[in-house]
């Protein structure tokens, strides 16, 4: 049974339209949710959590309909939207004392171990934390009640490279050890290169790809070379062509790469795919 199934979600705002959003998060998998700023990542996350009311479409967590089973679903899920930007005057231990009451599966030793691991002092107040430490505290709460699905909006933005790496390892550990699933949005695509199993890519409120990450990445090639060596027929097929001082770079679908003789064709990564796709 899928951890999350989203079918034909629609939400119309005066200046933005979430169109026919469908994807699924399988159990024990890490799904990366990518898209540029304003593409609809947060609106999608809020819609599936019933914080925003979709105009149409269906959302199921663990086979249970949302919002009919909102209470049960939320107990089995952990959500964070960026840093812990709440109750700045309250101590971490006070917030944790409140938070833990809502989750019957709260694991105090696990919570204490994350506090230690992240170097968080429970007596400190939220306002005394840096942005990075505040994200770590939000994550500490989210990770301490054995959630079956973690929904994380930009969990790595604002973290230093070492902390990001540490966090990605924790994600892998949770998936491997507890069989949990993770659905996280980010624009730091290199994080997903490292550990995502699946990718969902949203552009202007519409899902343009959702599936296995390796297959998705393998379906593109980076191509570069001298502009004069670029055949006109191939030029039309290049996605996000950038030309400067007689040199060009861009992206090709793997099927089109066969015609790129004499040009430098290299494997693509998520960043180049996203940048070139958005460039158009």
């Amino acid at each position: 049974m899928d951890a999350l199934t989203v079918s034909h979600l629609e939400k119309r705002y005066p200046s933005f339209h979430l169109r026919d959003v469908s994807f699924r998060v399988q159990p024990g998998r890490i799904m990366g949710f990518i898209g540029r700023n304003g593409a609809g990542k947060t609106t999608t996350l809020k819609s599936i959590l019933n914080l925003v009311h979709p105009d149409s479409g269906a959302v199921q967590f663990f086979g249970l309909d949302m919002p009919a089973h909102e209470f049960a679903i939320k107990q089995r899920t952990a959500c964070i939207f960026g840093a812990a930007n709440y109750y700045p005057q309250s101590a971490l231990k006070t917030i944790a004392a409140v938070y833990r009451r809502f989750y019957p599966t709260w694991d105090e030793p696990l919570y204490q171990s994350y506090l230690q691991r992240f170097g968080l002092d429970p007596n400190k107040k939220i306002r005394q934390l840096s942005q990075g430490m505040s994200i770590k505290f939000a994550l500490t709460l989210a990770l301490s009640h054995h959630a079956e699905l973690l929904i994380l909006d930009e969990p790595t933005s604002g973290l230093d490279p070492v902390s990001r790496d540490e966090l990605l390892h924790i994600f892998e550990d949770i998936v491997d050890r507890e069989g949990a699933s993770i659905f996280f949005s980010t624009h730091i695509t290199s994080d997903l290169d490292k550990n995502a199993d699946n990718i969902t890519y949203i552009q202007n409120g519409h899902i343009i790809a959702s599936g296995d990450k390796d297959a998705f990445v393998a379906s593109y090639r980076k191509v570069e070379g001298r502009s004069e060596d670029l055949p006109p027929a191939l030029k039309e097929r290049i996605i996000g062509l950038h030309e400067r001082k007689g040199e060009f770079s861009g992206l090709l679908r793997a099927a089109d790469a066969a015609g790129a003789n004499g040009l430098a064709v290299t494997p693509a990564d998520l960043e180049s795919i996203m940048v070139c796709t958005e460039r158009g």
């Binding site: 959590l49 939207f81 930007n85 709440y86 809502f102």
Partner: peptide, 11 residues
Amino acid sequence: TNDVFFTTLLP
């Protein structure tokens, strides 16, 4: 204090 947002994310 973002009270409403913190609370509505709880179960």
